[in-house]
Structures are given as C-alpha cells and as structure tokens.
C-alpha cells in the first residue's frame, strides 16, 4: 500500500526549513566566529583583562544562580502549592523580567536600588551601595534569571506527586518538615536544572548589567561587557573573548545533555 501523498510531502518542507534555520542561526555564526579566531593571538586569553572578565563572570553567574534559586524556590512553591486570588497576576509579574528588555530591567533596578532609588536611598544611608559593585552585577543577573528558575521549579512541583507531601502531613509532619524532607529531595533534579539554567542566563547577561552596574574591569566587567568594549577598537580581541564565552556555554549544554536535552 502506498502511504498518503501529502504525508511524504510535508517532511521535505519541514526538513528544508529546519536545515535553513540551523544554517542561518547556528552554523554560520559559529563558523564565522571560529574562522575569525586569531589562533596566533589566542595567548591573549592570559592577558589580565580577559582573566579579570572571566573571573567576574564566574563570580557573578554563580552568585546570581544561587540568589535566583534561593528566592525562586519559595516563589515557585507559593505559585504551585497554594491557591489565592490574583495568583495568575502574581505569576505574570514574577515572569515579567523574562520578556522585558534587559536594559529596561537595568533602568528599573536603578530607580529601585540606585543611589536615588526608592529603596536605594535608604540602603545608601545605611552605607550599602549596589550600582557599580559586583553585588549590583549579581542583582542584575539574578533579576533576569530568576523567572527561569521559577518556571523550572514550578513545573517540577506540579509534576511531583503531592500525595507524598499529604501523606507526610497526615502523619503529623509540619509543613516545614515536609518541604525540607519530602519536597526538596523529590525536586532535586529540577532544582539543579533550574540553577544551571539561571547560571547560563546570568553568564550571557549584558543590558541590565551595563545599565545598573556599569563597566569596570575586575569588578563589574563580565565577559559579555568585555566583548562589547573590546569590539569597539579591537575586533580580534573581541573574537577571542567570544570564543571563551562560547566554550563556557557549550560546556554547560554538554554537562546538561543527559539531564534534559535527550528526551
């Protein structure tokens, strides 16, 4: 029997578009970057500027991932395990940074935590400043990556069996005990995945960081900021730094591949 005709037609179109998409969005940019790498100048990675940017990036991403999970878990728990009026509004609000242009996020952070911001002015009189500090860069990166954590953990919570929590509760376990001994252990893979996602998003953060935390080598200049500044006057240097970022990002994906990339 011959299969229906349109069924064998469709995949060709899909394959063509898929191939085109991969060529334009993945292969060409990667190839372009690799073709431009001045291999003779790869030693420049050891230069203080590159090293400083790498260290700041690792610090900021790790700090942001930690912060995002610490605040993202309770928010996700509230969204997944409780019902109250306005829950969907709350969800929309906490996910807003996901769709907001990061530079707008940076401006928002300035108006909140800047020296003249509505919260920042009190922080400033207490001697705490966030703009132009590594902590500020962490805050900016956490701002953009927390929604990913919330999404990942909330869907994780919804797919775990809440009857286990209920059973523990009926046997007299306090809510706190349940979260600590049942919910979190059950959720460990999703928590880890959320942290890695947040880390990767924070690594690529640019707009909110440069707006809120500025650009200072060794303090707030992360790799993307260093790429941007270097590109202005030294494209080869920018390519070298870009390759570092690419390797880091690829490393994350490879580390994750068993967890959720292979379905």
């Amino acid at each position: 029997m011959t299969p229906p005709r349109n069924r064998s037609d469709a995949p060709v179109a899909i394959l063509v578009v898929a191939a085109l998409g991969i060529a334009v969005l993945v292969v060409a940019p990667l190839a372009g970057l690799l073709a431009r790498v001045p291999w003779s100048g790869i030693g420049r990675l050891a230069e203080p500027e590159a090293r400083a940017a790498l260290i700041v990036s690792l610090e900021v991403s790790s700090g942001a991932a930690l912060l995002a999970v610490v605040v993202g878990f309770p928010i996700a728990w509230v969204l997944a395990r409780t019902t109250f009026v306005g829950r969907s509004v709350l969800r929309a609000l906490v996910l807003l940074p996901l769709v907001l242009p990061p530079v707008v996020g940076g401006v928002a952070l300035l108006t909140a935590f800047g020296r003249r911001g509505i919260v920042g002015r009190f922080l400033a009189s207490a001697g705490i400043t966030l703009p132009f500090t590594t902590a500020g860069a962490v805050l900016a990166a956490a701002f953009v990556s927390t929604p990913l954590v919330i999404l990942a953990i909330e869907s994780g919570l919804r797919s775990t069996d809440s009857r286990l929590e209920d059973a523990a509760a009926t046997m007299g376990a306090s809510r706190r005990y349940v979260i600590r001994r049942i919910t979190i252990p059950l959720l460990r893979p999703q928590l880890l995945a959320a942290a890695v996602l947040a880390w990767a998003r924070a690594l690529g953060e640019f707009g909110a960081t440069i707006t809120f935390a500025g650009n200072l080598r060794g303090r707030t200049q992360t790799l993307p900021l260093a790429v941007f500044e270097t590109l202005q006057s030294d494209p080869d240097g920018a390519v070298v730094l870009s390759v570092v970022l690419m390797i880091l990002s690829l490393g994350v994906l490879i580390a994750l591949r068993d967890r959720f990339l292979s379905r």
Partner: peptide, 9 residues
C-alpha cells in the same frame, strides 16, 4: 583612575 567606578562606552 582609582576613583573610576565605570568605563562607559
């Protein structure tokens, strides 16, 4: 230079 908190683009 020691007072610089940000190098703008």
């Amino acid at each position: 230079e020691a007072n610089v908190v940000s190098n703008e683009q």
